[in-house]
Structure formats: C-alpha cells, structure tokens
Amino acid sequence: MEVDESPSSSTAMAKRGSRNVTAKLMAKLKRALDERNFYESHQIYRTIYVRTCSAEKLDEVLSMLHSGATYLLQNHQLESGADLAMLYLDAIEKHLGEIPADKMDVVAELHHCIAKGTQERQNFLAKALKLSIKGRPGAVSGSPVLHAKIATNLWKEKDYVAARYHFLRSRDSMNFATMLVEVHVLQGYAHEVDLFIAQSVFQYLCLMKDSDLAQSMLTAYCETHPELQRHKGPPYKIPLLNFVWHLLVSISVKRLNYFHILRSKYQPVLDRDPSYLDYLDRIAQIFFDVRPPQNPQRGGLFGNFFNSLMENFCDSDESDMQGPAEAAASNSHPSPQPDVADEELD
C-alpha cells in the first residue's frame, strides 16, 4: 500500500492531531470544573490558550477565556481569574490590535467581576483602556465607549468618585447626570445643588470639548433632580445654574462678547469657587480661540496646582474624545436662546 507523503497530507494529519489533543484537554477541563479543581482548571485553560490561539480560532478562544475568567472570578479565584482576563486582552492585542466595539461589553463585564480595590483590577483596566485606543495615534485617555461602561460599573458599586472620573471621559451625559443627582441627594447639602452640576459641566467642556453633551447633562440634571423639578427653566432661578445655561448658549452661538458679559455679570457667583475662573479661561481657549491669559498663575499655589491638573485633565487629542453618536444624543426639548441684553442675564 502506497503512503501519501505530500505536504497537504502532512498538514491534514497535523490538524487532526491538534484537534485530538484539544479534545482531550477539553475533556480534562470539564472534569476539573466538575470537581471544582480551580488550580487545575486554570492551568488547562492556559494550555488550551497557548495551543489554540490563532486568528482563525480567535472567537472560540476569546469565548473560552471569557467563560473561564468569569467562572474563576465568581468562585473567588482572584489571581487565576484575573490572569485569564488579561489573556483575553492579550489575544485581542495580538490578533486585532485594539478592542473592537463588539467586545467592549465583555471587557466591562470582566472588569466588574474582578474584585474592586485590587491591583488585578487596576492592571486589567489600565491595559484595557490602552488597547481601546491603540489604533489611534495621539489618543491618550481611552475609548469614551469603554469609559462609559466602566463608569456604570463603578456607579453600581457606589464608587462615585471613580465613576465620575470615567463619566467625564465618556459621552454618556444622561447617565452622568443621573448619577450626579443620586450623589447630591444621598451625600450633598441642599445649598450645593448647583455646585454639583456646574463643576461637572465646566470639566466636561474642558475634556470632551462638546457643548451639546454638556447641555444634555445640564438639562437632564435639572429635569430629574427632585429639588429642581419645581423650578422650571431655563432660565433658572438659581444664579449659578442660569450662568451655566447662558454659557452653553454663548458657545452654541459663538459670541465671545456674550461670554465676556456673562463673566462680568456673574462675577459674584463665580467667586464661590476660585477654580471656576480657570475653567472658564480654558473654555474660552477651546471654544472661542482666546489666547491663554498672560498671567495664568491665578491664586498662587492653587494656580500652580490647577495648571498642573489641567495639563493632564484637558490636553487630550480631540480624536480621542469621539464616541458613538447615539451616546451623545441631546435633550429632545431644545432650550430657548435668549438675546444678549444685559438685563436678561439675571
């Protein structure tokens, strides 16, 4: 009997051998899982990953790593579960370059499964954010889509400070506003109802450079906050809220004189927080092409701190701040745009 030693025959035999090995490993993995042998399960998952990870089998491998990491993490196997989660990102990096849109939910789910406050979660998030923008030169802060999903995770965990950080880098202005209402109702003083949204709008404008997003957040906050629902606006009865609304109008109509009148008219209101003037300087540079002030060190030590903060906080490339249009949908009831007459700014 003649033996076929052609290259195609050898390749076919190698593939059959590989399938047999994989089948045996999968059977061994099932036994380990049934016996709740977490250590052996982790090792087998790793072995299967090393032997099978390829472009042709990427979806299959990613699905396996996802289920394996979730299983181990849900059974309090932090190190081994986080290791498989990192392998999930490694596989994406090797074969796709960056995290595709259809894998963002899985990445967010894995982040949620890794115990909060751990180095493993921090490492996973740092790598995921980096991978979410790897294909865009100059982008530095991570995909707004991923930031929104991470923010939602943290919000559910009541980690409001961390959630706010990520919402500011997302385009999910509606959920951001809803969280701010929740935080103020649970933790804020009544007289701070305007401070919570004002600072967030200023920072959102500096980071995302999108006045429509800021407008939708302001509107959602004012329409859903129980202390503001009875005060229909705009215009608003609370001076700082009214200033923020007028500020957004001045940006939308691109009228620098309107902006200057606002700053002068509302100076006593803005003096409540020395950072407001610095944010407004930055906003003027972004939206009105105003040159930076000659003496940016306002406030001495505070000025130095603010400038250092803003270098890291605001100087992201605009292309890094683009997300899906549907996440940036503005409020369906557009605000009326007033004339710039001085008496109407009260």
Rank of each mutant, 00 (worst) to 15 (best):
S6G: 04
T22E: 15
L33T: 12
E35W: 09
S41R: 10
Q43N: 12
R46M: 13
Y49M: 03
S54K: 03
E60I: 10
V61Q: 09
S63D: 14
H66M: 13
S67T: 15
G68C: 06
L73K: 01
H76N: 12
H76A: 10
L78H: 01
E79P: 00
L87I: 13
L89V: 03
A91K: 07
K94F: 00
M104T: 02
V107K: 05
A108S: 12
C113T: 00
Q119Y: 05
Q119K: 11
Q122W: 04
F124M: 01
V140W: 06
V145S: 12
A148H: 03
I150D: 03
A151Y: 06
A151D: 07
E157R: 04
V161F: 03
A162V: 05
H184P: 00
Y189C: 06
Y189W: 08
V193M: 02
D194L: 02
Q199C: 07
V201R: 03
F202Y: 14
Y204E: 03
C206D: 04
L207M: 14
Q215L: 10
S216T: 14
L218I: 04
Y221A: 07
H225L: 05
P226E: 05
K232T: 12
W245F: 15
H246Q: 15
Y258W: 11
Q267A: 15
D271Q: 15
D273H: 14
D273I: 10
D273P: 04
L277N: 12
Y279F: 14
R282W: 07
A284I: 07
I286K: 00
P292H: 02
P292K: 09
P292C: 07
Q297T: 01
R298H: 11
G299P: 08
G300Y: 01
L301I: 04
G303A: 07
M310R: 12
Q322N: 11
E326Y: 15
P336H: 05
V340N: 14
D342I: 11
L345T: 01
